[in-house]
Design a protein around this nucleic acid. Structure first.
Lengths: 143, 143
DNA sequence: GTCCTATAAATCGTAAACGATTAAATCGCA
DNA sequence: TGCGATTTAATCGTTTACGATTTATAGGAC
């Protein structure tokens, strides 16, 4: 007898990630951001001038996913992409004025999301850490 | 100051779901299945003859996602799609012989995944239930 | 029976995600 | 110095995912 998706941890994760995505949409849509773009802006807000690889390490994505996403963000006027002059293989990512302004507007978003979950801050942190540990067990971070 | 993705519950969920996806890939690839297809076969293995809507309620997907996925699974010879004779709006999904055989081969997959997580069965069940509760809080199931 | 509405699936366009490959720049070592 | 190996992004093709719309069928009010 097969096992139903509703009994699987993997499906709980999969479907909850989608639900979280959907819960963020109304918070991000007014800003013109998709969810992965929100993560990228947030990452650059904490560390500007990262290379594509460094952003990929933080978001756990590769250039095949990031390059198109970053091009869209560049087209939207939030970031610039420029070859590093000392190592032309690398592309450095910087927030524009508009991008930095946008990143500051994002400060309230996590709080608004937290409210939707109905969880205490401590529960949120605990769950985050449990998930991060599982993720790193399944797929160790690179460099 | 912006918040880094690594501090966000949403990113932990997002990235862990992707890591789980990647952890399943080597288990499913030999069978020719993608991860969402695995979920669909599993669901049909527990309840054959569902309509597209019923499967969508179980997987929390809509026909815009399911129809192409199901067509690929039909092309692979695992399922049949046929209009319900009593209500021609509905499409009933049934496993073929090959599809049922495949669904039986999937019995070991969750155990193999559980081993990769390094978690106890009780921990897996607890985490699954916590996530499912969060999901349903964010996005109540339909019908 | 006819029409209006509701429901079920399909279709279309766009964005992510990822495997596999490619192109360009740099590094390392003989 | 020169050249093969490595690193970094980019490109290409396929699959998911989802908002918005469309088509076809069924149901209900009159």
């Amino acid at each position: 007898m097969a096992i139903a998706p509703s009994d699987m941890l993997c499906f709980a994760l999969h479907s909850t990630a989608h639900a979280v995505h959907a819960a963020y949409a109304p918070l991000l849509q007014p800003l013109g951001l998709t969810y992965p773009q929100y993560l990228a802006i947030s990452a650059l807000g904490t560390r500007d001038g990262m290379t594509v690889s460094q952003l990929g390490a933080e978001l756990r994505l590769d250039s095949n996913t990031l390059t198109p996403l970053l091009k869209r963000m560049e087209a939207a006027g939030w970031i610039t992409r420029s070859r590093d002059t000392r190592d032309e293989r690398q592309v450095r990512l910087s927030l524009t004025e508009a991008g930095r302004a946008l990143s500051l507007k994002l400060a309230d978003v996590p709080k608004a999301f937290a409210a939707k979950t109905g969880l205490q801050m401590s529960e949120i942190a605990d769950l985050r850490d449990i998930l991060a540990a599982l993720r790193d067990k399944l797929k160790p971070a690179r460099s």
